[in-house]
Amino acid sequence: MYKETLSSGIIIVPMQQEHAEQLEALQRIVFPNLAEEELLHADQYKKHVELFPEGQFVALDGDKVIAATSSIRYHFNLNDNEHHTFFEIMGGGWFTTHEPNGEWLYGMDVSVHPDYRSKGIARALYRARQYTCKQLGLKGQMTVGMLNGYAAVSDQMNIDEYYKKVKNHELFDPTVSVQEKVGFEIVGLMKDYLNDPTCGNAGAVIVLDAGKAI
């Protein structure tokens, strides 16, 4: 079983069904502006573990769930970023979109409790996902990173302009620019992806090759 112990004592391990209630509570803390139907709930987490256990990880401080990541396998064409919404891609939260033979690991979310940020936990979760990619022979990870810095400048530019500035490293986005530092590459813009004004309802399509070390 995968396990990484960080210098802080936090451990990264595969998600279990008994973590479900804590995971739902964590969602509400980390994503306060997400629409209710886009939040993940306890029963759904239990289903994720049943469907694709290799793609779900938690970070624990003792018995307390303080961070997590969820993912599915997915057929993704780098040259054709076919539009979809977050609600659609996560199968309404049930991950019925999981493709057992998909060649990419599609990250649904990475959530870290505010009290535990800037401790390398998110990077460790990405590392766990990278382990899954290598174990299953996948091409790598992909996801749509929320452009959370847009709200601060939305009165100055539209989301297309903001995206270009982030991609060209003219602006630093608190989510996507950090994901770039992990090793992800920005390959596209997905507008009308979710219902969150913080990111202008949009996200950046990002990919991480399975061969990259984190």
Rank of each mutant, 00 (worst) to 15 (best):
E4L: 12
S7H: 09
I10D: 00
Q16S: 10
Q17L: 11
H19V: 09
H19Q: 08
V30A: 05
P32R: 04
L34I: 06
A35M: 07
A35Q: 10
A35L: 05
Y45F: 13
L51S: 05
P53S: 06
E54H: 09
V58P: 00
V58K: 03
I66W: 01
T69I: 03
S71V: 01
R73T: 08
H75C: 06
N77A: 08
D80W: 07
N81L: 14
E88G: 05
G93K: 05
F95A: 15
N101E: 15
N101Q: 14
G107R: 06
M108C: 12
V112Q: 00
D115C: 04
Y116T: 07
K119P: 01
A122V: 08
L125G: 05
R127I: 11
Q130V: 10
C133I: 07
G137R: 05
K139M: 06
Q141C: 11
M142Q: 11
M146N: 13
G149K: 01
Y150L: 01
Y150E: 00
A151M: 15
A152L: 14
M157G: 02
I159L: 03
K164I: 14
K165T: 04
N168V: 01
N168G: 04
H169Q: 14
H169T: 13
T175W: 15
V178F: 15
K181L: 15
G183A: 06
E185K: 12
E185A: 11
M190L: 13
P197Y: 11
C199A: 09
G200C: 02
V205I: 10
V205A: 11
V207E: 03
